[in-house]
Structures are given as C-alpha cells and as structure tokens.
C-alpha cells in the first residue's frame, strides 16, 4: 500500500513526513502517514487518494493557525477502511490570502467543514455551498475566533464583568511583604 501511494504521491509532489524521519519530536504510528503537498496539487492529490488510492473516508478536515510563519495548515484526514490506514494531507496556505479549493464535490459533508473553517478561521472556499452562512456563531461580529491572534481572555474581560470581591495573593510576594518588608520597599 505504502509503495503504491508513494509512487503516485511523487506525481503530486507530495512529501511524506514522519515515517522514516520524525515529524517534530516523534515517530509516527505505522498506520498514520502525514503527507505535505503544495496548495495547487492538494485537491488533485486528494481526489486521486479518494478515487484510486482507496482512501474514501474523509475523517476530518480542519486548519491549524501557524501565525508565526504566517500560514494556515489545512489538514485533510483520509482513511482507508480496506487497509485500516490513515493519510493526513497537510497543505500550507498563505495566511494573508486565506483561500483554498473546495472539496464539497468529493464529499458532501465537506461543505459543512468548509463552512466552519470560514467562520472560525476566515478561510474561503470559493464555490462551496452555504459558505457564508452562519454555522455555530450566529450574530458573531468579531474576527474569526479560532485565529491565534483572537485573544479569548481579552475578549471576555472586555465583554463580561468579573465577579466582585475576588482577590488573590502570590505566596512569594506576600511573604516578602510580611517577613522582610524593609528590603521590599527600598530595592
């Protein structure tokens, strides 16, 4: 299976990660293969995996914000029931031009994922049905909340009122005030 996929993967310039070399710090499981592919090749590669590679089950479709590198990593997780094997297709797209080809023609439920990705990350999928309709966040005014630069804490402090009467003490600072205040005040 692996050889078969790898042979075709070359056509799509898809690079395996973590099989022989480690992805990040870990060695991947045998039945989980991460493949990195360029944005233009992604949908052709996924189509090939679905139609010919036997990876017909779209398990998960999501994005990860790597704001430091100014990219979104889009993750397509495909499963083959025949081989009990997963291929995770990773595509990096420009965060400033967050647009990706739609795959709703391959799996109808991908439209739901795409609707959610637009809402949560602001990634557009031209042609995807109901893309601009609210999914989970009806009436949401702010920026796409799953982006890393959306600060939930700042938002909640701005939006909600803290419960009055709460005060806490840091043990080290408190002990300084109690046990050696002289030194605390002068230096």
């Amino acid at each position: 299976m692996y050889e078969n996929v790898m042979k075709s993967a070359e056509r799509f310039k898809a690079r395996p990660l973590g099989r022989d070399q480690k992805i990040g710090g870990m060695k991947q499981r045998e039945d989980l293969l991460f493949m990195k592919v360029e944005q233009e090749q992604a949908v052709p590669f996924i189509t090939w995996l679905k139609e010919l590679g036997g990876f017909g089950h779209l398990v998960l479709f999501t994005a990860v914000d790597f704001i430091e590198q100014d990219i979104f990593q889009i993750t397509y997780l495909l499963h083959s029931y025949e081989q009990h094997h997963d291929i995770v297709v990773l595509v990096e797209i420009d965060r400033q031009k967050a647009e990706m080809e739609s795959i709703h023609h391959l799996w109808p439920h991908a439209a739901t994922y795409q609707q959610e990705l637009f809402e949560m990350f602001g990634i557009t999928f031209p042609g995807s049905p109901r893309l601009y309709e609210d999914f989970a966040l009806e009436g949401w005014q702010g920026p796409p909340p799953m982006r890393r630069d959306f600060d939930t804490k700042e938002y909640s402090e701005k939006t909600y009122f803290p419960r009055p009467g709460r005060v806490t003490h840091d043990p080290a600072t408190y002990m300084k005030e109690q046990l050696y205040p002289g030194e605390a005040q002068t230096w």
């Binding site: 710090g25 870990m26 991460f34 998960l60 990860v64 997780l77």
Partner: peptide, 25 residues
C-alpha cells in the same frame, strides 16, 4: 510536549470519535 501531530480514534456509540492534536513543543 514535543512538537508533533497525531490523530486518534475510538468507537463510541455514535460512530468514530477522534482527536486530532498538534503540539508546537
């Protein structure tokens, strides 16, 4: 946790339940 990505699944009553996790170290 060392940087890496993984996906795990289990059979819950409704079907496939899965966690996709990404660590940046």
């Amino acid at each position: 946790i060392p940087a890496g990505q993984t996906y795990l699944r289990a059979e819950c009553t409704r079907g496939e339940y899965g966690f996709y996790m990404v660590s940046d170290g």
